[in-house]
Nucleic acid binder design. Structure first.
Lengths: 186, 186, 186, 186
DNA sequence: AATGAATGAGGGTTCATTCAT
DNA sequence: GATGAATGAACCCTCATTCAT
């Protein structure tokens, strides 16, 4: 029961933080969104900042968990890459604003949260690095700087998605994969 | 004189907004950074929001102006692409935080500013689209979806730069250009 | 059993009120000090204020009881006076903070508590008045205004003790008695 | 002008703190008592605590200044003693509650304020000690422990006055002086 | 035109009290 | 009876904005 309410608060907070950003989010809005009293939040979280950190941590955990599912061996790199993009697409469609919280670099939080963010970003890049590494070893991909390649994959993915290009058109994923794989040169 | 002070305020505001973000930036900090009285800002700008919009507009104008310089005809696409990346690199190095203000989607401003942002982003993509279009017509690049290609170029550029990968390593631009042009596939 | 728990709560409250003062004392601290649940206090006391009043009343009752023991007839005034001071000394040493609660005039309580305090103070002064009265009638003391004399005795006692002058030096009591009795004039 | 308003705030705060105590005093009450806006206080004082400290410091400064006036040489100890009591009497009549703030030991302030309080108390006792010392040297008073004697004088003074005994009866000062000088013994 | 003192709406946080279990 | 999770009134403090000078 207790943990249940914690979750309710985190979900409400996620939606309000995502809508309004950290500074403009009001604890009262969060509490009413959660269907509880304003003071109740403080039974579960020390402060607004603390709540924010937990929201982020939760969102990130879900995200990382999903990401890890992609690595499964034995499938061609091309498919994994499509999955990687598809995953982000779904994530962004379902939790557009929350995704922003993860992708962007917020200035309004503890140094420790900032470090956490950095480490998360690194985790995400690492997933891409692993995808690449395995593909390079199998000879599917030429031997480029893995970290840079991973960064490029992530950047293309995020920028395509946040640009809203792919919102309704599934074929775009394949095109994106094609461009990442073969470039744009004739 | 009047316009001179306006500029002073915008510069000060740019530096404070970049440092603290919109919500945490204090009008008092801006005024003292500008070396003027707190009330004076309101002689030139209606409100904090208004000031912020002007700051963004100014930064964007400079940015767009620089971007337009790249289009110059007669040079190979590869060079233009390198210039495009180089321009962003310099911009990000000089005005890292301000650049964020432009690249990110701020939730803390007027709907009208949001629209302005959208149009700016479109302008930026348009520059890339034009680069691509001209290259496609010259046969330098295969006939991909121009807007998507442009978005990919931008995504690669921004993500590489914000990742800090290139901070001190100039060769990276060529590698990035290579990957954009020829992809990562063997 | 019921009364037993009441006593436990009063003792816990006394220690917390003494440590933190009325306003800063937290009901939760009191309950955990008492080893019971927060809500349980309200089974025994209507409110924080009510609890405070009971704490005071209890402390005062103990105090008054001790005071009354001094009056015993047949002993010289000088000894009684020394006892009076000694009693306060012990009281202050054992329950320094609680003693403050009694001696001082708290502004943070009901008018009725204030009146109670007044009456307690009067009781204490009365004890001193009785000491004096009996001494005056026996000719041990000159015929001064009894109430003023009593107030003086009390004032000297409390001020000496709270000043911490006598904390470790027993002889001081005799000196104090001497000065009260014979004044400071040559 | 600026200092003028500071003084206005301190006076208002003194009256509210005196009436309600530190914890219950509301900044809003203080501001409205001062006839200014709530935020204005914070232009002059960092926080409620800071304001409180300044109030105390101010009250104490006035008090110490008045006390020092008593020491003037060449007058008999008896007169000085009467002046000492008279001074406290007037002080308590005019600023009864504020006087309490000085005399009592508040638990709700910085350690540094507590130390300041201690030092003030010492100053006050020192004045009394000096009175006594000079009297002892002139042979007006027998050679008692000066600090204890001083504490006794202060105790008698304060206890008589806070008891409200002397509120309207001027003769009491002489009686008090008499008792301090000659004791109560026949 | 320029200033900065004054303002007060707004929001995070605390904690006495309630009440369902 | 005993509990402690839930509540929301209350209060300190910040800071964008105004306006008298």
């Amino acid at each position: 029961m207790k943990e249940g309410k914690r979750k309710v608060i985190i979900d409400a907070a996620a939606s309000i933080f995502a809508r309004d950003g950290f500074d403009r989010a009001k604890m009262e809005d969060i509490s009413s969104q959660a269907g509880i009293g304003k003071g109740t939040i403080y039974e579960y979280f020390k402060s607004k900042r603390d709540l924010f950190q937990e929201v982020i941590k939760h969102a990130v955990d879900v995200y990382i968990e999903l990401l890890k599912g992609i690595g499964a061996e034995g499938r061609p790199f091309e498919e994994k890459l499509a999955d990687f993009i598809q995953l982000h697409k779904e994530l962004l469609e379902k939790h557009r604003d929350l995704a922003n919280l993860i992708m962007k670099e917020p200035r309004d939080v503890t140094e420790s949260t900032r470090r956490y963010f950095q480490s998360v970003k690194k985790d995400v890049v690492d997933v891409a690095v692993n995808l690449l590494d395995s593909a390079i070893q199998k000879g599917e991909v030429r031997d480029i700087n893995r970290r840079m390649g991973a960064q490029i994959i992530l950047g293309v993915t995020v920028s395509l998605l946040t640009a809203g290009l792919m919102r309704d058109e599934d074929w775009d994923i394949d095109d994106a994969v094609d461009i990442i794989l073969h470039g744009i040169s004739k």
